[in-house]
Nucleic acid binder design. Sequence first.
DNA 1: ATTTTTTTCGGAAACGTTACCGGAAACTAT
DNA 2: ATAGTTTCCGGTAACGTTTCCGAAAAAAAT
Lengths: 339, 339
Amino acid sequence: MKHVTIKDIAKELNLAVSTISRAFNDKYDIRPETKQLILNKAREMGYRPNPIARNLLQQRSMNIGIVIPEFIGSFFPEVIIGAQEVLFKEGYQLLITQSNECYKTEIENVKLLERNMVDGLIISLSHQTKNIECFKELVSSGLPVIFFNRVIDILNTSKVVFDDYKWAFFATEHLIYQNYKKIFHLAGPANLSLAKNRIRGFQNAHKKHRLDVPDSHIIPSGFTIEDGDRVAMEMIENKNIPDAIFAAGDLTAIGAMKVFKRHGYKIPEEIAFVGFSEQTLARHVDPPLTSVAQPTFEIGRTAAKLLIAQIENQGVHIPQTITLSGKLNIRSSSMKLTK
Amino acid sequence: MKHVTIKDIAKELNLAVSTISRAFNDKYDIRPETKQLILNKAREMGYRPNPIARNLLQQRSMNIGIVIPEFIGSFFPEVIIGAQEVLFKEGYQLLITQSNECYKTEIENVKLLERNMVDGLIISLSHQTKNIECFKELVSSGLPVIFFNRVIDILNTSKVVFDDYKWAFFATEHLIYQNYKKIFHLAGPANLSLAKNRIRGFQNAHKKHRLDVPDSHIIPSGFTIEDGDRVAMEMIENKNIPDAIFAAGDLTAIGAMKVFKRHGYKIPEEIAFVGFSEQTLARHVDPPLTSVAQPTFEIGRTAAKLLIAQIENQGVHIPQTITLSGKLNIRSSSMKLTK
DNA sequence: ATTTTTTTCGGAAACGTTACCGGAAACTAT
DNA sequence: ATAGTTTCCGGTAACGTTTCCGAAAAAAAT
C-alpha cells in the first residue's frame, strides 16, 4: 500500500506541495510548463489523488446513501441505475442499503449512513414504517434527504412521486371499457400514501362511470407474489370470484393470476388482470400482464438531481415535489374485446 | 454542517484531545471516571466520530467495492445481501456498481472504485469480458480482489465458485431418469468457464447412461428471457423439437417455456424444462420450474469473509478457491412419471 | 530609473483523528 | 525515606490534501 503522494512528487521535482496541488486543480495560477512537468512526472510515478484527504479538508464525503426496502423485482434496481448515472457523473459515490421491508433494519441503515458522513440520502420507505419520529429528526438535522415513491406526506423535504391516482384511474377505466363489471382491487399496504392514492383512483373511475364499488371489493394485500396467492385462495374458498382484478403491484397480480389459472379459470375471458409498476416480468408471464409502467430510471435520475441541487445549495433550499407520469401497457391479460 | 469534534469536547472539559480519543478507543489507559465524564459529555453535545479523519490516518477507506454484471433477477441481489451482512458487521461499507453486462462500463467501475481507495474488490464478470489484461494489472497492483461465480481461471486470486459441473450433471441425470431422450442444453455465454462446466456436466451425464449427445443439442444462448424466446422460436421454425430442455439459466428456461406453451406444447408431457440458478421466479411460473439452487447468500458471505481475511493479512495471503454446493429443486416442469 | 502590478511559487495552517513520547503524580517495594 | 513502578493524561506529530498569505521575480507603467 505504498501509495505515491503529492509530497513524493514535490520532493522528486524540488517543488512545494502547494504547487503540485495547483497543477491538478487548474483554478490556481501556475506556469503552463511547470504544470506539464508535474503532470508528466505524476503519471510516470503512478500518482493517484487521495480522495479521503480531500474529503476531510472539504468536510464532505462525496458519498450518497440510498435506502430501499427490497432488491427483488426490477423496480428499485432500475431506480438505482438511474440515480447512479447522474451521481457518478457528478463525482458522487452511491452507497446502497436495503432493509428487507423491515423497519428496524431501515433505521439502522440510516444511522449507519449518517455515521459515515454521507452528504445526502435518497430514501424509499419500507411498508412497515409507521413511526416517523426518526425521519423527522433526520430532516431537521439539516442533512439533505430526498424521498421517492414511498414518501411521508407531512415531511418537509423534496420528493419524487408517481401520479398514482391518475394511473390507477386510467387502469380501472380500461377494465370498465372492456366491459368488466365486478372489479376487485388488491390494495397495497395501508400506511403508504401511494396505496391510498391508487384506491382513490380505483373508486373514482367507478364513480365517473356511475358504477358501484362496495368496500368489500378493495382487499388489503401487500406487494409480493405470496400476497397475491393468498388473496386469490381466499376468494376461491369464499366463492367470491371477480371478473377482473386491478392489483396495486405486478407481483400481486401475477401471484393471483397463477392461482386462478391453476383452478381452471380462463384468463382474460373469465377473469382479467391489470397490474401496477411494470416489473420486467409482466411481459413474460402467461398471458402477458397489462400494467401501469412507472418511469423507474427517470425517478432515480430526478431524485439524484434534486439531491445534488440541494447539497450544492445548502441553506437556500425550497422543498419541491416532482410528480412523474407513466403509461399503461395493455396486454392480453385484460383484452376481452379483441384477441 | 457544524459538526461537533473531539476538540470541542476537549475545550468544554479542559482536557487534551488525546484523552478524548482514548475514551472512545478503550485500548488506552484512562481512568474510568474521566472516561464516563467524556462519554456523557459527548452524548450531550451530539458528538459523532468522523470516519474520514480516521480513515486518512489509517490509510484505508473501510469501503469495499462490488462489481456485478446486472441487477435484474434475484441472483446477484441475494449475493449482495449476503456480502453486506458480513461486511457491515466488520465495519465495512459496500459500494455497489453494475455494468449492465458491458465490458467498458465494467472497467470504468473498477477504475472508479480504485480511485476511491476501496480496501478490496468483489467481482463477478460481465459475459462480454474477454480481455483480462486490466484485471491482471489490478491483481498485481496488490489490491485484494475476490472473484465469484464468473471467474477468470488463470488469475491468481481467491475465488468463490459453484460446482457447476456436478449440478449440471445431476440436473441432466434427473431428466434422463424421467425417461426423456432428446435433451437439449441451452448453454451460457461461451467465454465463461461456468458455461463450459455446465456443458461438461450435461455431456458426461449422457455418457454415464450410454446416451448419445450430438453437438447440435448444445445451443449457445445467454442468460436472459429474450435468449430463451429466441432459441425456442428457432427450434420451432426448424421443426427440431426436443422432449426436454436443460438451460444454463432459469430465465432462459422460462423464456423458452413461454414460447413453447404459446405454440401449444404441453409441459412437461411433451417438453420438460430444467433451469439453473433458482431465481425466485422459478417457483411462480406455470408450471413451476425445476431448477438447480445456488447458495446465493452463502456465496456473498464467503466472498466477504475471504476478502476481509486477505485485507487484514496483507502480505501473507494464499489464494484459495472455495467451491460451494447447491441442490436440485424438482418441480412439475420436469415430472413426467408422477404428477 | 523608479514604482506599481502581475505572475508564479514556497511556507504554513488547517481538516479530525490516532499514536507515540514523556511527565507528573500516586502507589509499591526495599 | 528513597528508588522503582504503575496509572493517568498532556503535547505533538503524523495522514494527504487544499487554501491562504506573502515573497521573489518578472513585467508593465510611470
